[in-house]
Design a binder for these strands. Structure first.
Ligand SMILES: [Mn+2]
Ligand SMILES: [Mn+2]
Ligand SMILES: [Zn+2]
Ligand SMILES: [Zn+2]
Lengths: 148, 148
DNA sequence: GTGCAAATGCAAATCGTTAGCAACAAGCAT
DNA sequence: ATGCTTGTTGCTAACGATTTGCATTTGCAC
């Protein structure tokens, strides 16, 4: 189970932050570590409720804020929709969002990252963080009606 | 007045879109063409009210949607805050936001734009639009207490 | 001018998210 | 195990940004 390690890591972060490991938190951490996508608060909530009927959406939001605060997760605010989260990845990456399906594809480019820093430096700034999102449409490949 | 040309251009866009040139719209267009910054709806509203007491915030929002729709303005959703707008620039650019002051600095990089398209293409996508925002802090320059 | 569809102002509604608060439960001390 | 203290919870109300419904006004083509 690749998720087990991720879960342990998340719990460790909370434990070291000196906050209590409660039942709702445990459930949310598990969900987060199993998700491979970029769920929003409601999606996490829906899955949590299936485990514990009594969990509240407020707690999901509070827990996401807590985890973001501790650097355990990242929050993304893609075009329009609500905040979406992902377990903080070991290596930085940016996102390409399929405008037709909503699919999120991850990518990383050292060259772009370097250029960004260069640009900021030229302007007299150092980057604290950045946001790079590509919104695109699948290219129709001549052969076969591959385009949905 | 550099703004006059901008105003005429905005009015022309509306006229050609076949919508009525109303009093509130004229006021908002003028404000938009004079702004050099990236105002949000309330900021535009505040200035509009000074010209015509009876203008409503709803109309500002509706007008911004209309103009965005016609491609006359661009909407930006920077970190946290409300949508901010700018008269659609002739040449594309991205933004660097000063995390301390909130200042917005514009920049353009052909190399980054090219790399983005390359990346998308490699993933089988063509870019519809993108969002690149750098959030940074002014670099303290050894001499003089320039960094505030 | 007249008529009518389009646009307005106002208020109420929506959406994602946060805040207030009484009841509850982690986790350390007995 | 049993308390005790205090952080957490679930609930509901509040929030800020934006949209909507609707009766009233207004552009503007005739
Ligand atoms: Mn990701
Ligand atoms: Mn700009
Ligand atoms: Zn990046
Ligand atoms: Zn760009």
């Amino acid at each position: 189970m690749v998720a087990k390690a991720a879960l342990d890591e998340l719990e460790k972060i909370l434990r070291e932050a000196g906050v209590r490991i409660t039942r709702p938190r445990r459930i949310i951490l598990r969900i987060l570590s199993e998700y491979d996508d970029h769920p929003d608060a409601r999606a996490i909530f829906r899955r949590a409720v299936r485990v514990d009927e009594s969990i509240s959406l407020s707690t999901v939001y509070r827990t996401m804020n807590l985890l973001e605060d501790k650097g355990a997760i990242h929050r993304h605010s893609f075009q329009g929709g609500p905040s979406r989260f992902e377990h903080a990845p070991q290596n930085h990456h940016d996102h390409l969002i399929d405008v037709d399906t909503g699919n999120v594809i991850e990518f990383a480019s050292d060259r772009i990252e370097k250029l960004q820093e260069e640009i900021a430096r030229d302007l007299g700034y150092e980057i604290v963080h950045h946001r790079l999102e590509l919104y695109g449409r699948k290219i129709k490949t001549g052969k076969g009606a591959k385009g949905r």
